[in-house]
């Protein structure tokens, strides 16, 4: 399992303009459903989990979020869906649910078995920790470029 194979170019988006975190999750959930990665129930559990255990992360230069939930047979295929936002939206932070962060890139995760994805998650967090790369990812406007920068970096 590697990050590159999980990141399908068909699941990287730039045009959507969600008003809030729930809308962003629903947009990516619908795309996941179209590409047969998840059952609709998964989106519901992610929305629910985000309320109780938010996933916004404050990075050096911008905010990201990694909405996800336990798979519970609702994930059919492993994948990551990405929504890049010109106008950041507010998520609450994972570190402290009382705090907010303006999120520029949403990475929604659909992973079948939690424990098998350790190396993949570590790579994703390596990307988050690479400030230069994150800044580049925030300004690209095509799935090809986004995918290329990540592939080159890992």
């Amino acid at each position: 399992m590697d990050l590159n194979s999980l990141l399908n170019k068909k699941l990287i988006f730039f045009e959507a303009k969600p008003k809030n975190d729930v809308e962003a999750i629903k947009i990516l959930g619908d795309k996941f459903i179209e590409e047969k990665y998840i059952k609709p129930e998964y989106t519901k559990t992610v929305v629910e989990r985000e309320k109780n255990f938010p996933t916004g992360i404050v990075l050096e230069s911008l905010g990201v979020a990694i909405p996800h939930a336990s798979p519970e047979n609702n994930v059919l295929k492993d994948g990551i869906a990405v929504l890049s936002l010109k106008e950041p939206i507010i998520f609450h932070t994972m570190e402290d649910a009382d705090n907010e962060v303006a999120v520029s890139i949403v990475f929604m995760l659909a992973l079948k078995e939690n424990n098998e994805h350790l190396s993949m998650l570590q790579k994703l967090f390596k990307i988050f920790q690479n400030n230069e790369l994150i800044k580049k990812l925030a300004i690209v406007s095509s799935a090809e470029e986004f995918h290329k920068y990540i592939t080159e970096a890992i």
Binding site: R49, N52, I66, N114, N115, L121, F125
Partner: peptide, 15 residues
């Protein structure tokens, strides 16, 4: 420990 699923705590635990 982390909030819900074990995803993020796995990364921290490995570190």
């Amino acid at each position: 420990a982390c909030g819900g699923a074990v995803a993020t705590s796995t990364v921290a635990a490995t570190a």
